[in-house]
Nucleic acid binder design. Structure first.
Lengths: 353, 353
DNA sequence: CCTCATATACTCAAGTCGAGTATATGATAG
DNA sequence: CTATCATATACTCGACTTGAGTATATGAGG
């Protein structure tokens, strides 16, 4: 997790705005003041494209809006949070989940709002990884590229245009504005936050800081969720703002951002990438999948060396032809690494040049 | 997080035991089915000893039992989970928190039980780090070495005795027993789990796997919490079991285990160690603090090289005398690293020999 | 001023890593 | 049927990192 936790050594952050009455009677069976929402970012890679399972809310006034599969947690019905999540997802999508991992619990007042809808006060985000084969048979919902929601994260064709064309100038302006907030005791200047998150001024782009970037855009009022939640947009900018990625229901885009950041970090020290692969694969297919998650362009030869010398894979003995060149050996995940090394993973680093 | 998430690729894990009625009327203002508990593992280092702030429940029948500061989350009173936590902690202990980070949300039915007490269904664990100076003035609660609750984690005087004397033989026996559970689709054999978590048979001890070890001991029925929650103990063992560390209220020891594992992991890639240090310190004091957290014995010269070349510290210009030898230069944390490097931290590795 | 204990500087070999060149081999066009 | 292509795989090499050690510096205390 690379939120701004390190920045935020606050003395105290806001206990003054105490009793803004938000009492609300929810019709759901056993819920009252606090409702717990379980949300899943279910990720797969289809044709080298990282995708996430979304459910479109057709009841929306215009066009509908995407959301993650979710449902309330009822301690009566489910023994654990995770089993609650699994059954909600299966009910809504028909998909049985394999690998599941908890991400974060969000509870900010105001960040769950949807106009006129009931309120989720606390949402627990989960990350699930699934393989393309299992991923096909869906009852509801559809797979969408995650870059649809985060176009600035898509570096597959080089640095995304939207960064220099839209995001940077608006953030630079936002950074110039005077800060009136009283909260953090030792605040990080907006300029520095922008520079670090987006790797400006010679800084490196850190592909793991997905959540930090989204939160920054939210704070700057540049994503639709911020406007929906009643934040002022990055003022001083006249005219309608462009869409900075497709919005999602509630705080689901924040959860998805957390999920993307977590997968990107995790494949480096745990072999979770294989949750996204079929049983047999070529090393280049593996590399393509890693690149789909992380952003592209790993050094092919070094990638082989890394994966093989780490003992992450073993050859099946067969080859795959029709690769457009010399046939490629097929490999499978070597499960024994889990029993050998303390932290096996694809320790890749993107190419500099 | 290094739970057994990688092991547990379950097909489905337990939706059969559906309606075990646990309805319960809680007297607290606006709560019903689900109550959210906020729990803080507040960590400091005092005289090179890693300590955690605990509050002893004197209302207990015999002797009292330790617990972490905690309280229910009320969305009416607090805008964010974190501000709720901060005010609970301040109310209970008089301590204003600095660095705070969310750990994990636990929701297992049965893991929160305390005989005859009301039930917390979901507990959100937090880690807080504080410096010794701030740490002194407490209204309630006291600092206890965290090794009191996890004696097997204390490698400061070499491999702890309790491992070979008590834990290993009992775990080996537990590993031999037939497994009747139906849950995991591809279960990790108990033997392997034991070997990996505790680094037996030539495996390395991974100081970050604190939670995995505790959960393993829980599953084996060796910690008091397991017996309290109604688990059978590692059967076949006759006579009273020794205490495997002091127990805590609810699932607080699990939260503390998560906290220890997280700090141990995090100081390696974020400069959070300085949250535990006074403003000025010598490099050896810094090393001692790192060793208190991680387990001891870093190579002194290389530690210096690492910390200095990473730009984590800068000399204050003064020296500290009375070190028993040559005076040591004083350093302070160089905050600018946060703005420079993507993931600055004390990338130490314990000495092999 | 000698000895002690610690602080700090420097050395060196082994391993890791980025980046490249060279070779192998099935598919396909002519 | 062979030249060409595209990819797969093998090997190389210098730069940097890292573990582990030796050497020197300096205040305190007798």
């Amino acid at each position: 997790m690379v939120t701004d936790a390190n920045f935020k050594r606050r003395v105290h952050d806001g206990e003054s705005n105490a009793a803004e009455e938000t009492h609300h009677t929810v019709s759901r069976s056993e819920t009252a003041g606090v409702e717990i929402g379980l949300n899943a970012a279910i990720v797969a890679v289809i044709d080298d494209e990282p995708v996430v399972l979304v459910i479109r809310n057709e009841a929306e006034p215009v066009g509908g809006i995407d959301g993650l599969p979710f449902g309330p947690f009822s301690p009566v019905a489910h023994r654990t949070l995770e089993s609650g999540l699994r059954s909600w997802v299966e009910e809504q999508t028909g998909l049985g989940l394999g690998y599941v991992e908890q991400l974060y619990t969000f509870g900010d007042r105001g960040r769950h709002a949807e106009p006129g809808d009931s309120m989720h006060v606390v949402s627990i985000g989960y990350l699930a990884l699934t393989e393309t084969g299992h991923a096909r048979d869906l009852a509801h919902g559809s797979w969408r590229s995650w870059y649809q929601y985060f176009p600035w994260e898509d570096w597959r064709k080089g640095r995304p245009e939207i960064l220099s064309a839209e995001i940077e100038p608006r953030l630079k302006e936002w950074a110039q504005q005077p800060v009136s907030r009283s909260a953090p005791a030792r605040p990080v200047p907006r300029e520095d936050r922008v520079r670090i998150c987006f790797g400006l001024d010679g800084g490196a782009w850190d592909e793991e800081k997905v959540l930090d970037r989204f939160e920054l855009l939210y704070d700057a009022g540049l994503v639709e969720e911020a406007r929906r939640d009643g934040r002022e947009s990055a003022s001083g900018w006249s005219g309608p703002l462009p869409r900075f990625g497709a919005p999602m229901r509630f705080d689901h885009r924040r959860i998805l951002a957390t999920a993307i950041g977590r997968v990107r970090a995790k494949i480096k020290y745990r072999p979770v990438i294989f949750e996204l692969m079929p049983d047999d694969f070529t090393l280049f297919e593996l590399q393509k999948t890693v690149e789909a998650i992380l952003g592209p362009h790993l050094h092919k030869q070094n990638f082989r060396r890394l994966v093989e010398s780490a003992g992450l894979v073993e050859p099946t003995g067969e080859v795959k032809t029709q690769t457009g060149g010399r046939p490629a050996k097929l490999f499978r995940f070597r499960r024994e690494v889990l029993l050998e090394r303390p932290a096996p993973g694809v320790r890749v680093k993107p190419i500099r040049s």
